[in-house]
Amino acid sequence: MVQVIRFITEGTIEEKIYQLQHKKRELVEQIIQPGETLLSKLSEDELKELLQF
């Protein structure tokens, strides 16, 4: 397991990008639940790829 430490300066574009990535990650986690059948045509990786910036 690799540990990543991020240093992001407040009020920068990097902070906004990080916040957007975090929101997208949360959305994917809310949409894809264990045993989910509604999204059976898209894999988790495919859905994540669709939501990438």
Rank of each mutant, 00 (worst) to 15 (best):
M1D: 14
M1S: 15
M1A: 15
V2K: 14
V2W: 08
V2R: 12
Q3R: 12
Q3Y: 11
I5F: 09
R6W: 05
R6T: 10
R6C: 09
F7K: 13
F7L: 15
F7T: 15
I8E: 08
G11C: 01
G11E: 02
G11K: 03
T12P: 02
T12Y: 07
I13D: 03
I13W: 02
I13V: 06
E14N: 03
E14P: 08
E15C: 06
K16F: 00
Q19L: 11
Q19V: 01
Q19S: 06
L20Y: 12
H22C: 12
H22E: 13
H22A: 13
H22K: 12
K23A: 09
K23W: 06
K24T: 14
R25S: 12
R25F: 11
E26T: 10
L27N: 09
V28K: 03
V28P: 00
V28Y: 03
V28H: 02
V28I: 03
V28A: 02
E29T: 08
E29Q: 12
E29S: 10
Q30E: 15
Q30M: 13
Q30V: 12
Q30C: 10
Q30T: 14
I31L: 15
I31H: 09
I32Q: 01
Q33H: 00
Q33E: 01
P34N: 08
G35T: 06
E36T: 01
S40L: 07
S40Y: 04
S40Q: 06
K41S: 07
K41I: 01
L42F: 14
L42Q: 11
S43R: 03
S43K: 04
S43A: 02
E44N: 06
D45T: 05
E46L: 04
E46G: 07
E46W: 04
L47M: 03
K48H: 03
L50K: 09
L50F: 04
L51I: 04
Q52F: 00
Q52I: 02
Q52A: 03
Q52N: 05
Q52M: 02
Q52V: 01
F53P: 13
F53M: 15
F53G: 14
F53W: 11
